[in-house]
Simulated assay, not measured.
Amino acid sequence: MSASPLPTEHELIERNRRFYDGLWRGAQLTEPQRFNTWPLVARLIAGATQRLEVAPGLRPRFPLKGTHFVDISAPALQRLQAGGANALQGHVTALPFPDATFDAVCALDIIEHVVDDEGALAELSRVAKSGAAVLLSAPLHPASWTAFDDFVGHYRRYEPEHLLAKLRAHGLTLEHSAIYGMQPKSSRLLDVGMWFLTHRRRQAMWWYNRTLPLFVRFQKPLALVPGMVGTAQVDEVLLICRRD
């Protein structure tokens, strides 16, 4: 966790909104089929007629057609709606849907961004039907906190066992997992990126949005394992859970 004073929930929501509004305003929508999560997603949503993805921005993993989306960013919502998606403005701790609505739920890169992660997990579990697939991701190891975590609006990183305990407490059983994410392994490269994000933000966002397709093209296939993947020196994990 960052040593700086912790933000309130409202402050963190506004920080995230400002960052992602700026990011998505100049970005293009990336189709779900281009990500290394697609083979997994295609299998999970087979037969899932009711689907939800929370906070996809312009990098959705579920198909636009037939999926409900919730996001806090107005520019992202406009692009999703223009692409034919059913997209609403909202927050993961107060999802605007009845209990047990969805056969498949996706919330990547989100629970680390909210103060009330217990409330977020409770909501994701609440709207999922019994037996629904719930796809999550989260960064690991508080000791690995960097300035990048602060900048993108993270509130926490997780110890693996603590994260698993939270999932179990909300009726989510981990079935498979994989190493996930694209944070640079080089601390020097991260420092350079942070300098540009801090001092040349508009240019940094421009370059990020135009080089992302290159990063996406060279993603490694997901290496799924039963249960929790070995987490030593792993920055982020993808979690495939089942609603009890």
Rank of each mutant, 00 (worst) to 15 (best):
R156T: 05
D99K: 10
L197M: 14
A94I: 07
L189Q: 12
R43H: 03
K129E: 10
A204D: 10
S186D: 12
V229Q: 10
A147H: 13
A87G: 05
H113Q: 10
N36E: 12
Y180H: 10
L163T: 01
F196A: 15
G230Q: 12
S187Y: 06
P221M: 02
G230T: 13
R210H: 15
K220F: 00
T8M: 07
R59P: 04
Y155T: 09
F102I: 01
L121N: 11
A169L: 13
S186F: 05
N16Q: 11
L124H: 04
L58K: 01
S186G: 11
D244K: 14
G47A: 04
Q33E: 15
I110P: 02
F62M: 03
A100G: 09
G83T: 07
Y158F: 12
L88E: 13
V114H: 01
H113S: 11
S186N: 11
R43S: 04
G66W: 00
L136T: 01
G57W: 03
M182A: 14
L164I: 11
H176R: 09
T211G: 12
W38V: 00
A204V: 12
G230L: 09
V92I: 14
T37R: 01
E11R: 09
D117Q: 11
D244A: 15
I110Q: 05
R34Q: 13
S144N: 14
V115H: 07
Q81F: 08
R15K: 14
L136W: 04
L12Q: 15
R188S: 10
P98L: 04
Y155V: 14
R168N: 15
E9R: 12
L58M: 06
V152E: 11
A55S: 12
W145I: 10
V115G: 02
V216R: 02
L40G: 00
R202N: 13
H113N: 08
L212Q: 13
L40N: 01
A223Y: 02
L167F: 10
T146C: 05
D149F: 05
I45G: 00
Y180S: 00
E11T: 09
L197E: 11
W38P: 00
A133Q: 03
S144D: 15
D99T: 14
V229G: 10
L212K: 12
P184V: 04
R59S: 14
A169H: 10
A76P: 02
R18L: 09
G47Y: 00
A232R: 06
E9P: 11
V192W: 13
C241W: 02
P60S: 08
D117S: 11
E112D: 15
R15Y: 08
S130R: 15
G227Y: 04
I179F: 03
L124K: 05
F215W: 15
G47F: 01
W38Y: 06
L58R: 02
A178T: 00
D149K: 01
L64W: 04
N36R: 15
D103Y: 06
T49Y: 06
V229Y: 05
E11A: 10
D103H: 08
E159N: 10
L140S: 07
W195H: 07
K185P: 01
Y208W: 15
R43N: 03
S137V: 07
F218K: 02
R217Y: 09
G171E: 14
S4P: 03
S73G: 03
K220V: 00
K220Y: 01
R15G: 04
R25W: 07
H10F: 08
P60K: 02
L95D: 06
R201H: 14
